[in-house]
Simulated assay, not measured.
Amino acid sequence: MEISYDGTAYHGWQIQHNAISVQEKLNKALHTYLRHDIETTGAGRTDTGVHAKQLFVHFDSDHTALKNDPGRCIHALNSLLPFDIAIHRIIPVHEDAHTRFDALERSYEYLLHFDKNPFQTNRSYLLRDKPDIHKMNEAAQHLYGKQDFSCFSKSHTQVFTNICTIREAKWEESENGMIFHITADRFLRNMVRAIVGTLLEIGVKGSPVSYIQEVIASKNRSHAGVSVPACGLYLTQITYPYIHR
């Protein structure tokens, strides 16, 4: 199932105790419509306030309507979901398909804007000073390839390795702002927000381009920049070998 959501009102994707999550709302809607318990598995976790333009989830169900009339199912499920969560596609896959482990690449965007705008509140990071985009793009070149990115990972996460392969990392100007694009085979917890914060140390605070090389070499989160606010972060695309865009 392909979904999207505005994460402003939620404590991330994953079900939380005493907090509202996107997964909780989706599971409830599926249970109501299919009339049996559903446990969804997402392609990854998004933190509190982070948005997703595209997220895939998988679940098991033998309900005939899912295969025979997916359009009707989508319409019915969307009517059960809050306005800030939407289902776009229902895709039958083989029984061993896994949204997290089968993903080939994931892409994120981070949005900045420089003038106060009520329509960008909770959807972009308001920055007072305009960064030097050329210095940040020069620094971003050092992110490419297969590397140990421990310096950008939240501490005490349960992962086997901090090695990721980044294929794209670049800034572009937008109307009244900038967008950072990044694509990798996998991401660590809080990684994109830490990378953006580190690049802003170079683009706004005047650290040299070589600073990012020193941060990566340190493998120490305390050497990197601060994590920028969640409101500007969007999961934008996930690629699978068996799902067409």
Rank of each mutant, 00 (worst) to 15 (best):
Q14E: 10
Q14M: 13
I15A: 08
I15M: 09
I15T: 12
Q16H: 06
H17Q: 12
A19Y: 12
A19N: 13
A19M: 10
I20P: 08
I20K: 15
S21D: 04
S21T: 14
Q23A: 06
E24Y: 09
L26N: 02
N27H: 01
N27A: 09
A29E: 00
A29Y: 00
L30A: 06
H31N: 12
T32C: 08
T32K: 14
Y33R: 11
H36F: 10
H36Y: 09
D37N: 15
I38Y: 10
E39C: 13
G42L: 01
G42M: 03
G44W: 00
G44Q: 00
T46S: 08
T46H: 06
D47S: 07
D47V: 07
D47Q: 09
D47N: 11
T48Q: 14
T48Y: 07
G49A: 05
H51I: 05
H51S: 04
A52H: 00
A52W: 03
K53N: 13
K53V: 01
K53Y: 09
K53S: 14
Q54A: 11
Q54L: 08
F56W: 13
F56V: 08
V57L: 15
V57A: 09
F59T: 00
D60L: 11
D60W: 09
D62H: 11
D62V: 07
H63D: 15
T64Y: 07
L66M: 04
L66A: 01
K67M: 11
N68H: 11
D69T: 12
D69I: 03
D69W: 02
P70V: 04
P70R: 02
P70W: 02
P70Y: 02
G71Q: 09
G71E: 11
R72L: 10
C73Q: 01
I74D: 04
I74H: 06
H75W: 10
H75R: 14
A76D: 13
S79M: 12
L81G: 01
L81T: 06
L81Y: 06
P82C: 08
P82A: 05
P82E: 03
P82Y: 03
D84M: 12
I85P: 04
I87S: 00
I91Y: 01
I91W: 00
P92W: 02
H94M: 08
E95V: 12
E95K: 13
D96Q: 14
A97Q: 03
H98W: 07
T99A: 15
R100A: 11
R100C: 12
F101D: 03
D102M: 06
D102E: 04
A103V: 10
L104F: 00
E105V: 03
R106S: 04
R106T: 06
S107W: 00
S107Y: 00
S107D: 03
Y108Q: 03
Y108I: 03
E109R: 15
L111D: 10
L111A: 13
F114A: 04
F114T: 05
D115S: 15
K116S: 15
N117R: 09
P118L: 05
F119S: 11
Q120C: 10
N122C: 13
N122F: 14
N122I: 00
R123G: 15
R123F: 14
R123W: 04
S124T: 06
S124R: 07
Y125A: 07
L126I: 01
L126Q: 10
L126N: 03
L127N: 00
R128S: 14
R128W: 02
K130V: 15
K130Q: 09
D132H: 02
I133Y: 02
I133D: 01
H134Y: 12
